[in-house]
Simulated assay, not measured.
Amino acid sequence: MQIISISSLKGGVGKTSVTLGLASAAQARGIPTLVVDMDPHADATTGLGVRQDVGTEDVGTLLSHPRRVSLAEHVVPSGWPDTRPGGTAEADAGTGGVGSAPRALDVARGSSRTSLFERPTTRPRELRRLSQLLESVTRYALVLVDCPPALNGVTRMAWAASTDVLLVAEPSLFSVAGTERTLRALDLFRREYAQGVRSTGVVANRVRPASTEHQFRLGEMDRMYGDRLLPVAIPEQGNWQQIQGAAWPVHAWPGETAARSAALFDELLAAVHRPLKDRRSQRRH
């Protein structure tokens, strides 16, 4: 099972949008995927069409006693329509309708309770909380963890449980500099507490191709991050707020702009999601 933490230590760069885009691409490919919403704002939960009154415990509550609960018993299906070939036209709360494939996208919903773990910590007992929760989920090939935009205990838990970390940055001065500092912090944390992290990468998001400033910053990111900078850049999309507000996957949204974004998220998923045998034999920085 590949566990990818999507992180940023600067808010407003589209971290949750990238999480949702990757979830949409994974669903379209039929990859059994779980989204774990660790951000206290729970925007990924909302964007995936999951209500807070579904009768299961949220991640923040489960983290309080990870050894005594089963995360697998508290995941819920996303509210998205099924975009797989042959999938159902509407989201199914079970294993799919007659003639449909088993559902491929589930959610461990977020809530403000996760903020109880935001205090900085390097205590092994605290860092293992998410790892212990994920031990009970085995049906997924991919887990996407949407982290809060801060280097706190919640983000550290996510990194400690992950096989890969994806940092989201926009091509602006403060974001580029902040991401470089985050990479240094991640490398230090990885050596001490998260040896299971096999790869770290950066994706440029909210890129305006016509902007001279953005093109300059993209060149700067290439020089600073080297081969950690993924070859896929996600452009700024005017109707992204509309797509998220409708709690809809980008792969199902009509229009050429959405189709181009969906294709880019397909490329991004291909860049970060690798079969287990490849992850064992291939290491990056």
Rank of each mutant, 00 (worst) to 15 (best):
M157N: 14
T16P: 11
A185I: 04
R217G: 00
D82P: 08
F189S: 08
F216N: 04
S64N: 05
D266G: 14
S131P: 00
A141S: 09
A141M: 00
G245E: 13
G49E: 08
R113M: 06
P149I: 07
L134I: 03
A258W: 07
A177P: 00
L22M: 12
S281A: 15
D106T: 15
L127H: 11
P81H: 05
R103K: 08
I6H: 13
N152A: 04
A72F: 02
V137F: 00
T155F: 12
A247L: 07
G47W: 10
H285P: 13
A25W: 06
T182R: 00
F265G: 01
H285Y: 06
L229E: 04
D37A: 06
K277L: 15
R274Q: 15
E126L: 13
G86Q: 07
A141N: 01
A28Q: 14
T155D: 01
S131Q: 10
W248L: 14
K277I: 14
D39P: 07
W80A: 06
V107E: 05
A263V: 12
G178P: 00
A177D: 04
V176D: 01
Y225R: 05
D58L: 05
S17D: 12
T33P: 02
R128P: 01
F265I: 08
V137G: 00
V143Y: 01
V35Q: 14
P275H: 12
V176Q: 03
H41F: 05
N205K: 05
A25Y: 05
G60D: 05
S17M: 10
Q237S: 09
G226W: 07
H273A: 12
A161P: 07
R109E: 03
V50M: 06
G21L: 11
G49L: 10
E236L: 14
R156L: 11
R283N: 05
Y140F: 14
P85I: 01
T61M: 09
R125M: 09
S136A: 10
L105V: 04
V207S: 00
E256A: 09
L167Y: 08
Y140W: 11
T56V: 15
I234D: 03
T155K: 02
A158L: 12
Y225E: 02
K15I: 03
D37G: 04
A258N: 12
R223Q: 14
P254A: 03
V36G: 03
D266E: 15
G21R: 11
W240I: 12
V207Q: 00
S78P: 02
G97A: 10
A26F: 05
W253I: 08
P275G: 13
P32R: 00
H273D: 11
D53H: 10
G47C: 10
L127A: 14
L144A: 09
V165K: 06
V13N: 06
L142F: 09
S17W: 04
P171A: 12
P171T: 00
M157W: 05
Q244H: 13
S131D: 13
T61Q: 09
G30D: 04
S281W: 04
L71H: 01
E170K: 09
C147W: 07
V107L: 11
T212Q: 09
G79L: 12
R260V: 10
L144K: 13
R139T: 13
I6Y: 11
H285G: 06
A104R: 15
A23T: 09
G87Q: 03
D92T: 12
A44L: 07
G60E: 04
W248Y: 13
G153I: 08
Q215I: 00
R280I: 14
V145P: 05
H74Y: 03
P249M: 07
D266A: 14
K15R: 14
G97F: 11
V35Y: 13
N152T: 04
